[in-house]
Computed example of a mutant assay.
Amino acid sequence: MGNTEQLAFFLLLVIALVLAFWRGGAPERCGAGVVLAMVLVQFGGESVLPSSFRSVDPTSLMADAVGTVGFGVLALQARRIWPLWATSLQLLSLSAHFARWADIGIPPTVYAVMRGTPTFLALAAIAIGTILHLWRERRHGDDPSWQDWSRVAVASARSREASWRRW
């Protein structure tokens, strides 16, 4: 990654995390926590195992796995769309590691782009999600953060009961 790309990444990282922690709802703050965990894994691992684009980078693989699981759990619980985007993007990043592992002739530069770009876009998803959260709060006065699974179960049971009555 060149200096310009690194600068853009770290600038978006700071903006997304500050915005999410400062003005975001609970899901946005949890997403920022997932990103912080990914950063800690990445920088902690880099001190032990330097990054390489010629073979699978175990540190980046672990960071992307943390991101995929963290955003995936968040996507199941939060009443937001952006965690689905972030989870999907992290799955793309994970697939880059498997492509490198399978050694299907991916040049090192392509591997670097494949594993870094989705995380950059996941940061953008958190920032956009935080902005949309603020917009919904201003517009509606409230923006529920979490799924109410008991309400979903009751609505599903009522729907099944109503369909049986039609028969």
Rank of each mutant, 00 (worst) to 15 (best):
M114K: 05
W167F: 11
V35Q: 05
A16E: 03
W85L: 03
A96F: 02
M1L: 08
A112E: 13
G72W: 11
R29A: 09
S51R: 15
G25A: 06
L74S: 07
R54Y: 14
L74Y: 11
A8D: 00
L74C: 05
S60G: 13
L84Y: 15
A96D: 07
G129A: 03
L92V: 13
A124P: 15
R139P: 07
S51E: 10
A153L: 13
P50L: 01
R115A: 09
L121V: 11
R80W: 06
T87C: 04
H133S: 09
M38S: 01
A155E: 10
D57K: 09
L134E: 08
L19M: 14
S88P: 03
D64N: 15
S88L: 14
G67H: 13
T59C: 07
E137H: 07
S51C: 05
V14G: 10
A37F: 07
L49I: 12
V35H: 02
W135I: 14
R166F: 05
R160A: 07
D57E: 03
S145H: 12
W22I: 01
A20Q: 04
H140Q: 04
T117Q: 08
H140V: 00
A65G: 09
T59E: 04
S52D: 06
A112T: 04
V152W: 03
F9M: 01
A32N: 09
G72D: 10
G25W: 04
T4C: 01
W85F: 06
S60N: 03
S163H: 14
N3E: 10
A63Y: 08
R54D: 14
D57L: 05
F43R: 14
V66T: 07
W149F: 13
S156L: 12
G44S: 01
I15V: 14
W164H: 08
A75I: 05
S159C: 04
W82V: 02
S51V: 12
I106Y: 04
R160P: 00
A124T: 15
S47F: 04
F98Y: 13
A157H: 12
S145M: 05
E161I: 11
A63M: 11
N3Y: 07
R136I: 00
P107T: 02
V35M: 10
A157T: 12
A20R: 08
P58M: 11
P83A: 04
G44F: 02
Q42F: 15
P108A: 01
A96V: 06
V152C: 02
Q42R: 15
W149Q: 02
A125S: 15
I81V: 15
E161N: 02
N3W: 12
L11Y: 10
E5Y: 12
T4L: 09
R23S: 02
H97F: 05
R23Y: 01
G24L: 05
A78D: 05
F21A: 08
W146C: 05
T130M: 00
E28I: 11
E5Q: 15
D142Q: 13
